[in-house]
């Protein structure tokens, strides 16, 4: 399959941010035995924590005057409001409503981030990709409806 191609004027800009959160893998409707069997030590009562790294990639045309897709100062404000404030130094199970009925796995956290960030970028800009590291050995990627760039 031919890879996704950008038109000449379009550039992908990626910005990394870091947040530290606690989480616990637990489903209320399951028995204690089943939670422990499925989630192992990630089901421990008080949860545990990670230093997450989120890479946010925005697709857009390069403004001829500023040479930018988006001003990094503006992007940082969005990331602070939508990601850092609700997630950094929080217990995701207890402090983020989105996870009241969802296990805060890396997969669900990236979906939360997409839900929060995608509406912030309007035409001709758009959110292209998120990449979330839980630790250096484990990460997830999400493109929404976009095609991955080869």
């Amino acid at each position: 399959m031919e890879g996704f191609l950008l038109s000449a004027e379009m550039v992908l800009l990626s910005r990394k941010i870091y947040f530290s959160s606690a989480h616990r893998y637990h489903i209320d409707s399951w028995s204690a035995d089943k939670n422990l069997a499925v989630f192992g030590p990630c089901n421990n009562p008080y949860g545990h924590g990670h230093n997450y790294e989120l890479e946010v990639t925005v697709l857009g045309p390069v403004d001829e005057d500023t040479g930018m897709v988006i001003n990094l100062t503006d992007l940082d404000l969005i990331l602070k409001e939508k990601i850092m404030n609700p997630l950094d130094h929080r217990h995701l199970n207890h402090e983020v409503a989105y996870f009241a009925d969802r296990v805060p796995t890396t997969e669900n956290i990236i979906l939360f981030c997409w839900q929060e960030l995608a509406p912030c970028f309007t035409h001709p800009m758009s959110l292209y990709k998120l990449k979330l590291y839980e630790n250096p050995e484990l990460f997830v990627e999400y493109y929404g409806a976009n095609t991955p760039l080869v």
Partner: peptide, 23 residues
């Protein structure tokens, strides 16, 4: 060349595709 990336810092990078666009 299917992908070209310029990493400015540990936190910022910029990507494009040198291939001619499909459309």
């Amino acid at each position: 060349v299917s992908r070209l990336e310029v990493q400015e810092t540990r936190k910022n990078s910029f990507i494009t595709t040198p291939k001619k666009p499909i459309a």
